[in-house]
Nucleic acid binder design. Structure first.
Lengths: 192, 192
DNA sequence: GGAGCGTTTAACAATTTTGTTAAGCGACAA
DNA sequence: TTGTCGCTTAACAAAATTGTTAAACGCTCC
């Protein structure tokens, strides 16, 4: 049991799902990309489903801690939002299709979501947003909408990049620049 | 060759992919949902791939004409944007995962996008956006960013609804209401 | 050199999915 | 009534995917 190889396989699976966005990849695809024998996948993970489960759980976990980390910082509101954007954008650039993978797994067959409560950090951040609205630096609305706007403007253009690259007829590198500009655009769009 | 049945099958496939978001559905799943024999799929579409191709092409086509229709109207800017939101939201509510399907197909294997030019209507709408910025009713930025912001705030919360329902711990109907509120929120967010 | 470990190879079995074919059924129309 | 048409049934073939197993290979470490 070589932990490094187990990791290699798992990371390769993540690359295929989250980076390339190939949500239909087979175990053979994964083994080939990892440069190992397909038997090894069964050796380490017993079955395809268990590998998927691990990848899924770690994706959820990473998104969760990403959020908590960003919201936990002891910073003024605007800096906190900037930090949030940085953290989020970095992960989206590394793994553009992570969220798409999550959704596709959730919608696949008899998948059941665990019914988690809102995290304490999230609730307190929603309060912070509300307070900021009273101060007048951002528009007044249900703080959930504020947060969803933020997530949307961050994630969507990256997830849908193949579509928008084509719609706007931009080269790959030109679209990369476009994404680079997002942080300022978003800040500009949410702060009054 | 009963056109109605062919349509039934195709529409059922769209329901499964675009409504339920089950991007891994098999031909058997589709046949069952349509209440027909699996042989009929081959009878009408020859193969699974050809069915997928039709569904894909019609999805692209519908998105395209949806956009053109909204942008083609001879209306003042704000009304045009409102109309755009209406058209778009209606389709997203009917087929929340249409875009997710498109992305998953595009990323799947050796898919190649046809290199289309920007549509004339799109270009003229980008000009309209720029003009509106000069008038000062919306913030100044690259019009593409304006448009992407709009798309993002419209689409993302719907595509990702399973995730955000859970994050905010909202019931299905409560999330429906949340989406209902999006139009005003978006207008509020993009107009100064 | 021999033992142990991680990995590969290879051969299969099992399962799932897709594609094909021919016969038959029921309704409706000529 | 006799066809024909749309569809089903059923039985298979073919292919793709997944899971299992045993033997062997190349290390490294003793």
């Amino acid at each position: 049991m070589e932990k490094a190889t187990e990791e290699l396989i798992k990371e390769t699976a993540k690359d295929i799902f989250f980076k390339q966005g190939n949500l239909h990849a087979t175990t053979q695809d994964i083994a080939d990309a990892a440069g190992v024998n397909r038997s090894l996948l069964n050796y380490y993970f017993r079955s395809r489903d268990l590998l998927f489960e691990q990848v899924y759980n770690e994706a959820v976990q990473s998104k969760r801690s990403q959020l908590d980390e960003a919201l936990d910082a002891d910073l003024p509101f605007r800096e906190k939002v900037e930090r949030f954007i940085d953290v989020y954008l970095r992960d989206m650039r590394k793994y553009p299709f992570k969220e798409a993978f999550l959704i596709s797994e959730i919608n696949h067959k008899d998948f059941v979501l665990k019914n988690k409560k809102k995290s304490a950090k999230l609730i307190s951040f929603l309060d912070e947003i509300a307070a900021e609205m009273k101060k007048g630096t951002i528009r007044t609305m249900d703080p959930m909408h504020f947060l969803v706007n933020l997530f949307s403007m961050l994630s969507y253009p990256i997830i849908m990049s193949p579509l928008y690259q084509q719609l706007f007829n931009l080269s790959h590198t030109r679209y990369e620049n476009f994404i680079d500009e997002r942080k300022d655009i978003i800040l500009q769009s949410i702060f009054i």
